[in-house]
């Protein structure tokens, strides 16, 4: 009389229909990748902010620009972030200045363009994979919902040849289907949170880069005039 179903988590997944299993697999992959990117971005942005802090300290401590440039460009480690912008701008400035007989405004234009390009490249590197987090955050609930709807459809279809429908007939199907929604939400929630957090961080870094570029061009302009 009392029907007991074995509702262990693994048996629910193995007994699910192929489509639901596919949905779960896709969601698991998406979730895994998004978590990988979340942690990767977390470290990358933390490093970029730390580098920027360090470089700004060094830059505003009143060191000689030439010696700073020498140290940066001859460094063994790969230069990123604000150092890169400084290096690109100062190199362009030196090149243009060496050519001589150039208008100061033209020199400054060229320097700014070089710095702008370096800045775009840096920001692009920082924003890499953020789009993936955004799409996981917005799409994976729908994928999970799709799996759930499919599972519930199957659960109800299997009821069609039962005269007396009890909750015990539908319960396993619905539980199995709801796992897909849970999985989708598990993938989506951290992805959305991380996307918002990281895009905010990248925006702040972009503002810092912009203001640094402006201030650095002012310093270069003053130097060119002398």
């Amino acid at each position: 009389m009392n029907v007991t179903h074995d509702l262990s988590f693994l048996s629910l997944i193995t007994n699910a229909s192929v489509l639901v299993q596919m949905v779960l697999l896709i969601l698991l992959l998406a979730s895994g990748l998004s978590w990988y990117f979340i942690f990767g971005k977390l470290f990358a942005i933390r490093d970029a902010v730390r580098e920027a802090d360090k470089f700004e300290d060094e830059f505003w401590s009143g060191a000689d620009l030439n010696s700073l440039y020498q140290r940066v460009s001859s460094g063994r480690t790969q230069i990123v972030g604000m150092e890169k912008i400084f290096e690109a701008g100062f190199r362009e400035f030196l090149k243009l200045k060496r050519q001589g007989r150039m208008d100061i405004s033209a020199v400054m234009e060229g320097t700014r363009r070089a710095m702008r390009a370096a800045c775009q490249r840096e920001l692009d590197a920082l924003e890499q994979h953020l789009a993936f987090l955004a799409s996981v955050g917005s799409v994976s609930p729908y994928i999970g919902l799709f799996g759930t709807v499919w599972g519930i459809m199957n659960a109800f279809r299997s009821l069609s040849n039962v005269v007396q429908a009890t909750l015990a007939h539908v319960a396993p199907g619905i539980a199995e289907a709801l796992i897909a929604t849970a999985m989708g939400l598990f993938a989506a929630i951290p992805a959305v949170l991380a996307y918002n957090h990281f895009s905010h961080d990248v925006d702040r870094l972009a503002t810092r880069f912009d203001s640094f570029m402006e201030e650095f061009s002012n310093i270069l302009q003053r130097q060119a005039n002398t």
Partner: peptide, 26 residues
């Protein structure tokens, strides 16, 4: 200046932590 391949810092750590999060979830 050509765009250089940049090393993402802490890739290994990111992968390990991602796997850990999923193990906890399961």
């Amino acid at each position: 200046m050509p765009p250089t391949d940049r090393k993402e810092p802490g890739r290994k750590w990111a992968a390990v932590l991602a796997v850990l999060v999923h193990l906890i979830f399961v």
